[in-house]
Design a binder for these strands. Structure first.
Lengths: 91, 91
DNA sequence: TCCATCGTTCGAATTATTTCGAACCTTTTA
DNA sequence: TAAAAGGTTCGAAATAATTCGAACGATGGA
């Protein structure tokens, strides 16, 4: 999970899902021109790590944060990560 | 920081430092046979990410968690990470 | 001073992640 | 039923991270 969220792009996706589920097409990457296969792969990493759920929704895909599961397994972690200073990467 | 702690070995090191500083030689890796250069590199990643401090101490090196700095920049994150279920990697 | 101890840094080899296009699948619309 | 929309999966190429040995630096003790 930490690994999945340690990538800025994936973290940004997780942040977008805080306020509720979004269809894949509604999740925006910092660079809007990345191929769909790349975007799909980013989602896969999040999904595999248990951060995100990905259910079919018509011909789209509905993404949602797995809050309950994550809070149960890593109490406080998700909140801390998501609320951390946005542009935090310096040291 | 998330990246630095997303490695089990590095996370384990951080955990060992929760109760106070330790000399490098007192930090134990899961495999005690890894070369010192590898161990040193693990420390470097933690240091670069701002997780750990590394001051000279005689001919040894004293490692310590940078709690205050981390808590200031990422409130709650360190606590959440460190208190997360120990063997947590399944999904 | 000489030498052993404790670590760091460097470079090369191995291994893991990321990225992309192409092929494919399912659902919706014409 | 054909075709478009929205995504996934696969494989190969490019990047990045890890690992290790060898060479180096500083400190402390004989």
């Amino acid at each position: 999970m930490l690994f999945a969220l340690s990538d800025p792009e994936r973290l940004a996706i997780a942040r977008q899902l805080v306020d509720g589920p979004l269809d894949m097409a509604e999740c925006h990457l910092s660079n809007p021109d990345v191929p769909k296969s790349t975007k799909s792969h980013l989602m896969k990493v999040l999904r595999t790590a248990g951060v995100v759920r990905n259910e079919a929704n018509g011909r789209a895909r509905r993404l949602s944060l797995r809050r309950e599961d994550l809070d149960a397994r890593f109490p406080g972690l998700l909140d801390a990560v998501l609320s951390a200073e946005e542009g935090a990467s310096k040291s």
